[in-house]
Simulated assay, not measured.
Amino acid sequence: MIVEAAGRLFFASGFARVSMDDLARELGMSKKTIYRHFPDKRSLVAAVLDQKFAAVERTLVAAAEDAEGQPFGVRVQRFLIAAGSELGRIGAAQLATGRGDVMLRDYVEQRVDAVIYRRVDELFRDGHRQGLLSAPPELLSEITRGALERLLTSQLPLELDSTAADLLRATVDIVLYGAIRSVDPGNRR
């Protein structure tokens, strides 16, 4: 109950703006009761983030299961779109790059690495082992990491009237399939 309420407040107002007094008021209990379960605000924030990242992980597992048996490009695309959508929903990129508690930023970066990037690395290594990728999997992983992080913190989605997930889908298509379209030699402009 405490973690649920803290999550609602933290994500609505921002971690730094919510005090333990605010949370106690929201829950109708004393701060002392909250502190019996969580020794400090940082441990409560970690519990909230653990809950959020567990939900992200469940979504990614479901996306991977749904894409099982699909062509490799479809599997990569579905995984990355799910990852981008989920990370955007919880504001992970802003948490990892924003001002504030260094330990919080480090924690978010570690969770993103464990939940998202290790799976991306495995997916690309698997594709490389199957002979489906001509580029080194490490290069594709690095490009994908950079695109994901940049699109989640960029103003480009707003400028292009699109979501970060939509732009990530386009980025994945470009990385996996190339940016140059086949042109009929007789129909060049």
Rank of each mutant, 00 (worst) to 15 (best):
A54K: 01
E57F: 07
E57A: 14
L60M: 07
A62L: 03
A63R: 11
A63Y: 04
A67P: 15
G69I: 08
G69T: 12
V74T: 00
F79E: 13
A83P: 12
A83V: 07
S85G: 12
E86I: 04
E86G: 11
L87Q: 11
I90W: 05
A96P: 03
G98W: 06
G100C: 11
D101S: 12
D101G: 04
M103I: 02
L104G: 13
R105K: 07
R105Y: 02
D106P: 04
E109P: 01
Q110W: 02
R111C: 10
V115G: 15
R119L: 01
E122N: 13
E122T: 12
L123N: 08
F124Q: 10
F124K: 14
H128G: 04
G131S: 04
G131W: 05
L132K: 14
L132P: 10
L132A: 05
L133N: 05
L133G: 08
A135V: 04
A135R: 12
P136I: 04
P137I: 06
E142W: 01
T144I: 02
A147P: 13
A147S: 15
E149G: 10
E149I: 00
R150V: 12
L152A: 03
L156Q: 07
P157Q: 01
E159R: 08
E159Y: 05
D161S: 00
D161L: 06
S162W: 02
S162F: 01
T163S: 15
A164V: 03
A164L: 02
D166E: 09
L168H: 00
A170P: 06
A170R: 07
D173T: 14
D173Q: 14
I174C: 08
V175A: 05
L176S: 09
G178Q: 11
G178Y: 09
I180F: 09
S182W: 06
